[in-house]
């Protein structure tokens, strides 16, 4: 069955979405990510969407769900690499992806994940930013 691969890099999970998503693929991805967070005890999830040429409200919702589910499992999520045309369209559509952190590229995303996990650890496990 077709699935989106999830790579483990250090303490993070890296997901690169390259294909046009349909429902089943999206549902499988959500399951896979949550499974992997628990299995690998990952503290951060990075979703690279630089190859996506459009994000509709369905995919937007999926990104939001992954972020919320990950947070419950104590992992930070950052979405990286959204293309300008996609971002402009999403804004027009009325989707602001509240609760999803974003970064320009994989390097910047990595920086963001590291610093927010450090901050979290410094503040103690019970404080959430």
């Amino acid at each position: 069955m077709e699935r989106i691969p999830i790579l483990k890099m250090g303490g993070f999970l890296l997901i690169t979405i390259q294909v046009d998503m349909h429902d089943r693929l999206a549902m499988t991805l959500q399951n896979d990510v949550t499974d992997m967070i628990v299995k690998t005890r990952a503290r951060g999830v990075m979703i690279d969407i630089s190859m996506l040429d459009m994000v509709d409200s369905f995919i937007g919702r999926m990104l939001g769900s992954i972020a919320s589910m990950s947070r419950i499992l104590d992992a930070e999520t950052v979405v990286v690499g959204m293309q300008p045309a996609v971002a402009i369209t999403l804004v027009e559509l009325g989707l602001s992806l509240t609760g999803v952190r974003t970064a320009l590229n994989v390097d910047k995303g990595m920086e963001l994940l590291r610093s927010s996990i450090e901050r979290k650890e410094a503040n103690g496990a019970f404080v959430r930013d």
Partner: peptide
């Protein structure tokens, strides 16, 4: 998904800008 690719191809074919392509494809998807 198939429809999105189809609409994208037609939009590219008549010279839509990237933003215009993305907008019509996203609207179609919704």
């Amino acid at each position: 998904v198939r429809m999105r690719q189809w609409v994208r191809a037609r939009a590219v074919g008549i010279g839509f800008s990237l933003v215009d392509q993305t907008k019509i494809v996203t609207a179609a998807s919704e």
